[in-house]
């Protein structure tokens, strides 16, 4: 770029003034939403645990199931904030490290679900005809069976294990995205700006990728955020039933599953992993709600 062009061409700030303004507005709307901020706070703590986990926990070796029977089933104390479990591992360490497992589960399950669901939804909505019929009927079949039950069945067939649990959850999670995106695509397909794009000669691919997909992003983000929490809950449920992660793997559901044998006297063993699940799911849901509020175009006017 020559010097003269540089003076003609507005700078980055100027070119993105609208985006900056919009981001500010989003931030302001979000800040004024108490529950969304609470959600954001919880998720921040959760992400900090994920990022810094191995360096901040007091007994890193306990995460992978170190045995220290002398310390077993100690109540919460200064040296073991959340107490210890039946083999003497520090529950606090295992809960913090468990955040990594949960995030991994959440990301992989929602990721795979989106990866299958969004393209199918767009194809169904945009192409129509028998293709739509076929995709939507298969989706309906999946949606008519309760997701967790189906996941239990799949995980049962595949055999227990964290990887199989994620696979099973992904396989039951995508239909929700198909429904959401198909409905959105149908309404966008008849939008006037899509007509306008056709009339200036935009091809089908361009219409899908430039005009339809970007306008589907808001609902995808909102649903994705809420599904993170639900997927973590789902994986924990499978773990609890013995179909997911296996002890001593530091997964919250599996921890509760073992810990419930020690209730009520050694309550801390299942209480703290339970709180971790509860707060994480709550956090993602509140965040999702908050995102819906700011991304909903009706709310913006």
């Amino acid at each position: 770029m020559t010097a003269t062009e540089q003076t003609n061409e507005p700078g980055w700030r100027e070119r993105h003034a609208s985006t900056i303004r919009m981001a500010r507005l989003y931030a302001r709307t979000f800040r004024n939403n108490g529950s969304a901020m609470l959600g954001l706070g919880i998720i921040t703590v959760f992400l900090l645990a994920v990022l810094l986990g191995p360096w901040i926990v007091p007994y890193p070796e306990d995460a992978t199931g170190a045995i220290n029977l002398a310390n077993k089933l100690q109540p919460p104390s200064a040296s073991h904030w959340f107490g210890t479990d039946e083999v003497g591992s520090d529950v606090f360490t295992r809960v913090v490290i468990g955040a990594r497992v949960s995030l991994q589960i959440g990301l992989i399950v929602t990721g795979i679900a989106m990866f299958i669901g969004v393209p199918l939804g767009i194809i169904a909505g945009f192409v129509g005809g028998w293709v739509e019929e076929a995709i939507m009927r298969v989706t309906d079949v999946f949606l008519s069976v309760p997701g967790l039950i189906l996941a239990i069945a799949i995980a049962g067939v595949l055999g227990p294990g964290i990887f199989n649990a994620m696979l099973a959850l992904s396989l039951v999670w995508w239909p929700g995205y198909v429904r959401l995106i198909q409905a959105k695509t149908l309404s966008l397909k008849s939008a006037i700006y899509v007509d306008a794009a056709r009339s200036i000669g935009a091809g089908r691919l361009r219409i899908v990728f430039v005009h339809i997909l970007p306008n589907c992003l808001s609902p995808i983000i909102v649903k994705g955020s809420m599904d993170m929490g639900m997927a973590i809950l789902g994986a924990a449920s499978l773990g609890f039933l013995g179909l997911g992660a296996q002890p001593p793997y530091p997964e919250w559901g599996a921890m509760i599953s073992v810990g419930r044998n020690y209730l009520p006297d050694w309550w801390w063993y299942s209480f703290f992993p339970g709180m971790a699940i509860f707060l994480t799911v709550l956090g993602f849901n509140l965040l999702g709600d908050g995102l819906r509020d700011i991304l909903d175009p009706k709310g913006r006017e």
Partner: peptide, 24 residues
Amino acid sequence: ERALRKRAQMIFQDPHSALNPRMT
């Protein structure tokens, strides 16, 4: 059809929805 687009164009009724809201 591509050639036709260069020669004939359309203006739509509702300018509020004739522009993609995510495009500058």
